[in-house]
Lab assay of single mutants.
Amino acid sequence: EDEVKKIVKRLIENGVDDEQIKEIVKRQGVDERIVDKVLKELK
């Protein structure tokens, strides 16, 4: 989960929008619920 957080944070800093972040992270095989949780925490 910490790995996911790092990735998502980097994507947000690069101006990637939420939908794209979800797609990218899902392609890495991460559960969507984890992605949603991380996005909420970082906003």
Rank of each mutant, 00 (worst) to 15 (best):
38 V>L: 12
30 V>G: 07
9 K>P: 00
22 K>T: 04
7 I>F: 13
27 R>H: 09
6 K>G: 07
27 R>K: 13
8 V>D: 00
4 V>A: 04
16 V>S: 05
34 I>D: 04
26 K>M: 15
5 K>G: 03
28 Q>G: 09
38 V>Y: 08
31 D>C: 03
37 K>F: 06
34 I>N: 02
18 D>G: 06
21 I>K: 00
24 I>A: 04
9 K>N: 08
23 E>L: 13
22 K>W: 07
31 D>Y: 04
37 K>R: 12
29 G>H: 04
19 E>W: 12
33 R>Y: 14
15 G>Y: 04
4 V>N: 01
23 E>Q: 11
14 N>C: 11
23 E>R: 11
22 K>P: 02
21 I>L: 04
20 Q>N: 10
41 E>L: 10
42 L>K: 01
4 V>K: 01
3 E>I: 11
36 D>A: 12
43 K>F: 08
11 L>N: 01
39 L>D: 00
15 G>N: 06
38 V>S: 02
34 I>E: 05
25 V>N: 02
18 D>F: 14
17 D>P: 15
40 K>R: 14
11 L>E: 02
8 V>R: 00
16 V>F: 15
42 L>E: 02
11 L>Y: 05
2 D>Y: 09
32 E>R: 05
19 E>T: 10
3 E>G: 06
2 D>V: 09
19 E>L: 11
10 R>M: 15
4 V>M: 05
14 N>R: 13
43 K>A: 10
26 K>Y: 06
9 K>T: 08
22 K>M: 12
21 I>T: 01
4 V>I: 14
40 K>A: 13
27 R>N: 13
37 K>S: 06
33 R>K: 13
20 Q>L: 13
7 I>L: 14
42 L>I: 10
21 I>C: 03
11 L>G: 01
25 V>C: 11
3 E>K: 08
42 L>A: 04
35 V>C: 03
15 G>Q: 04
28 Q>N: 09
30 V>F: 15
4 V>S: 01
6 K>Y: 08
21 I>W: 01
40 K>C: 06
11 L>V: 01
11 L>P: 00
38 V>F: 07
16 V>T: 07
33 R>L: 11
14 N>I: 13
9 K>D: 04
5 K>F: 10
5 K>Y: 14
26 K>H: 07
22 K>I: 12
34 I>P: 00
43 K>W: 07
35 V>Y: 04
41 E>N: 06
10 R>T: 14
8 V>G: 00
29 G>M: 03
19 E>V: 10
39 L>N: 01
2 D>K: 07
